[in-house]
C-alpha cells in the first residue's frame, strides 16, 4: 500500500490512542475524580455536594461512557474548566500557545540554518582540521543540556552587560517585531543548540553516505563540478534523514520549551503545564498535554509529507 495512504490512515488511530492515554492517565491520580477535577478544594465539600457534583459531571456513569462524553466534548473544543483560572481550558491554552509555537519554530529554523551547512561543510572536508572542529562543537552541543546553556547565557549577560533579558510578559511578534525578537532570540538559541548539533551530525553522516553512492560517481563521470555534485546530486538525498529527524525533534523542542520557558520566565504553554502540575489543576494538565501532543502529531504528519515530496520512491510508490 502507498506509504502516504498508510500514514494518513493510522493518524486518527494514534490520535485516539493519545486521547485514551491522557484520559485514563488522569484517572490514575490517587484519590477520586472529584479531587482530580477540583484539586484541594474538594476537601471542603459535603457528601451530598460530592454526589451531586459527580452526577453533574457524569462521574456516576461507567468509565467508558465518561470517556465517550469527554471525547465528544473534545470535538466541540471543550477541554473542561481550569480550576486555577476559572476559565475554559482551551481559552487558557490558546492564550499561551503562540509563544511556545514561536519559540519552537524559531529554534528549529536556527538549528536547520546552522546545522545543514555545517554538516555539508564538514562532510566535504572529512578528517581535515575544519571537519574535526565542526565535530567537536557538534559533540559538545549535543552533550550540553538546555538549562545549562540558558543559565550560562543569562550569567554572561548579567555579569558582562549588567542587563537581563526582558522577562515576565510576552511581546507578540506582530505587535512589536523587534521587541519580540530581542526577547525570543536567547531562548531560541538555548532551545535550539542541541538540535543544531544533532542536525549537524546527521547531515554530515548522511552526506558522507551519499557522497560514496554510485550516482554521485555517475555525476562526476559526466563532468559535473564539485559544487553541482554536492548541492544538486548529494544534498537532496542527504536531506531525507535530516527531515525525518526534524519531525521527531520538533517534539523535543515542544517539550524542551518547558525548561527554557522556566529559565527565561516566559509565559508559554510549557510553564503553564508546569504550574498546572504543581497546583494540581488536572483539567488544565490534561488539556495542555493533549494539545501539545496533537501539535506534535500534526507536525510529524507534515514532515512525513515533506519527506515524501523529497523522495519520489515514496511519492510515486513502486519497487
Amino acid at each position: 500500500m502507498n506509504y502516504l495512504t498508510q500514514r494518513l490512515l493510522t493518524f486518527p488511530l494514534v490520535l485516539l490512542g493519545v486521547s485514551l492515554l491522557v484520559f485514563f492517565a488522569i484517572r490514575l491520580v490517587p484519590g477520586d475524580a472529584i479531587i482530580a477535577m477540583l484539586g484541594t478544594e474538594a476537601g471542603l465539600l459535603t457528601e451530598a455536594q460530592r454526589a451531586s457534583l459527580a452526577a453533574y459531571f457524569g462521574l456516576d456513569q461507567p468509565i467508558v461512557v465518561q470517556y465517550g462524553r469527554w471525547l465528544a466534548g473534545l470535538f466541540e473544543g471543550n477541554l473542561g474548566i481550569s480550576v486555577t483560572y476559572g476559565k475554559p481550558v482551551l481559552e487558557v491554552i490558546l492564550a499561551r500557545f503562540p509563544l511556545t509555537l514561536e519559540l519552537s519554530l524559531l529554534s528549529m529554523l536556527i538549528s536547520l540554518a546552522v546545522g545543514i551547512p555545517a554538516g555539508v561543510f564538514a562532510a566535504t572536508r572529512v578528517d581535515r582540521p575544519s571537519d574535526l572542529v565542526v565535530r567537536l562543537f557538534a559533540m559538545l552541543g549535543q552533550s550540553t543540556p538546555s538549562f545549562v546553556v540558558g543559565l550560562v547565557l543569562i550569567y554572561f549577560l548579567s555579569v558582562t552587560f549588567r542587563m537581563l533579558p526582558a522577562m515576565g510578559s510576552f511581546t507578540p511578534l506582530f505587535v512589536d517585531p523587534i521587541g519580540n525578537l530581542s526577547q525570543m532570540i536567547l531562548p531560541s538559541i538555548t532551545l535550539g543548540l542541541s538540535f543544531a548539533a544533532a542536525v549537524t551530525r546527521i547531515s554530515r553522516s548522511a552526506m558522507l553516505d551519499v557522497l560514496s553512492d554510485d550516482y554521485v560517481r555517475t555525476a562526476r563521470s559526466k563532468g559535473a563540478s564539485q559544487r553541482d555534485v554536492v548541492w544538486k546530486h548529494a544534498l537532496p538525498n542527504a536531506l531525507i534523514p535530516v527531515v525525518t529527524l526534524s519531525g521527531v525533534e520538533f517534539g523535543y523542542l515542544l517539550g524542551g520549551a518547558v525548561i527554557v520557558e522556566q529559565i527565561f520566565a516566559l509565559p508559554g504553554l510549557g510553564r503553564l503545564t508546569l504550574d498546572a502540575i504543581s497546583q494540581r489543576d488536572y483539567p488544565l494538565v490534561q488539556g495542555a498535554v493533549l494539545f501539545i501532543a496533537l501539535n506534535f502529531l500534526v507536525v510529524n504528519l507534515l514532515v512525513d509529507l515533506a519527506y515524501a515530496a523529497l523522495d519520489p520512491r515514496i511519492r510515486l510508490g513502486g519497487k
Partner: peptide, 22 residues
Amino acid sequence: MRTMDVLLAFPAILLALLIVAI
C-alpha cells in the same frame, strides 16, 4: 507499534511530566 507511536506522540519531558503529575 501503533501503541509505541502513541507514546512517541508525547514529547519526552512532557510524558515524564504527565507521569510525575500522576
